[in-house]
Design a protein around this nucleic acid. Structure first.
Lengths: 249, 249
DNA sequence: CGGGAGCTTGACTGTCATCAAGGTGGGTGG
DNA sequence: CCACCCACCTTGATGACAGTCAAGCTCCCG
């Protein structure tokens, strides 16, 4: 009942020919680890990349595939999922334009440890790992930024381990919501809208719980007027309180 | 009853003056990310480091301390622990000689996200972060190896997230034992002995459970003749079976 | 407008945390 | 060197949190 209206998400489709040569150069310059490069250097680097467009829900690579390519999100969102043999999934990361994925290091016989799937239509740049390593060797600023980002991700990962080990489900979900709000949130009449198709299952896979339990918790948050949400979308109405919940005691 | 005998661990003490200048050079060359450096380069790098000796159980730095120093384990073992406000701990990593710790990147206002504590007597080298970044800038092979190691740790972390989200306690503990066996195991009459003082609490903090539950599981493994263990030590008698348990279904 | 994917909610169950009460090994001081 | 004592370990009883199963609902897409 009540506050579920039609999806307020921006139309996530129709970026069909965004992956043009012109745009690539502009976008590459926005990628964090290329920011220190000159225009000429960027042009050189750009030659090594290939652009691809993916529809929502497509699989970019699968857990176990040979890992020879590094990718960068130019437009859209990508999720990294680890699967167990029984098919349960764990959502490892939700990526945004500018984020890279696929091991930046990896020797010839490494494989991906996770599956990458588009969460919206997306444009992805690819580079051969050997080429990327050459770039890192040539420009230490690039290697350094990649290291910074990887370290940052390691720290996030460890925080999540801490949460899984010590926090009850409610707090974990509150924390996931706040984090997503910070990363993907946009101002909107409903509150801070998370610009991302986000099912209860996705949320559950991020918080390490079942979709049924995630649903129950979300219902409670909705009753307490902390969020508004519907099918595949969530908006945060009271972030401070969610933060308090995720950290209290 | 039965198989608990006196600790079979090698005497973990008395490395008092291992931290001599002579040894430092030799040890530095063994650190993974310095292996590509020439002797002369190593000598230069060595100047930037300071050696310190710690007794078992000492705290090297605390969660929240300002992070300005990078450290390398030369001898002994160090554990990284994240604490919640209520004082519960999560064991993030158990380090051995050659491993570095403390963020390799970190700007001036970063703080440590975990506490580092010695698990045995230990010898630790320290370097100022700014100096280390200079080294990485100068020698891209060093930056690259650090990136490799960080990526490797990120992958381990993510695997652990998967385990915490999907596996029951028994399998998680089986997996922790196998991993520790691979990293710290030494051949011994009892089986593959984990060369490390390792309490049930430590094990529990690695597997994300309580020490009581860890104890119960260990008792069961002992009955099934998969391990031998006593106060603060564990030896693996049947690794294949433990592996099977950690991965089955 | 019909079908199906996604969401909600209830009832039941099982795993595991918690609390608590003994054992036991080994480090320490006399 | 021995005895003591404490930290560590074991094991039981109890209960709660959250997973599973299942049924019905609703929004959306075609």
């Amino acid at each position: 009942m009540s506050s579920k209206r039609k999806t307020p998400l921006e139309n996530p489709s129709l970026e069909g020919h965004h992956c043009t040569v012109d745009l690539r150069l502009e976008k590459l310059g926005m990628v964090p680890f290329f920011q220190a490069l000159s225009n000429e250097q960027l042009r050189q680097v750009n030659k090594k990349f290939t652009a691809n467009h993916y529809a929502r829900g497509e699989t970019i690579y699968r857990q176990g595939d040979s890992a020879t390519i590094l990718r960068v999100v130019v437009a859209g969102n990508v999720k990294l999922v680890a699967h167990t043999m029984e098919g349960e999934g764990v959502l490892l990361a939700m990526l945004q334009p500018g984020d890279f994925f696929g091991n930046p290091t990896a020797d010839s016989k490494d494989v991906y440890n996770e599956t990458a799937e588009t969460q919206t239509d997306a444009c992805i740049l690819s580079i051969r790992l050997s080429d990327f390593r050459e770039i890192m060797n040539g420009y230490s600023s690039v290697a350094m930024r990649v290291l910074d980002i990887t370290t940052e991700r390691l720290n996030e990962s460890r925080q999540r381990i801490r949460h899984l080990s010590t926090l009850p489900v409610t707090k974990r979900i509150a924390h996931v919501l706040v984090t997503l709000g910070n990363k993907f949130g946009e101002k909107h009449p409903h509150g801070l809208l998370i610009q991302l198709p986000l099912s209860r299952k996705d949320l559950a896979d991020m918080a390490g719980t079942s979709s049924a339990t995630a649903s129950r918790v979300m219902s409670r948050f909705q009753n307490d007027n902390l969020i508004t949400s519907g099918r595949q979308w969530v908006a945060i109405k009271n972030k401070p309180e969610l933060l308090r919940i995720s950290a209290e005691d």
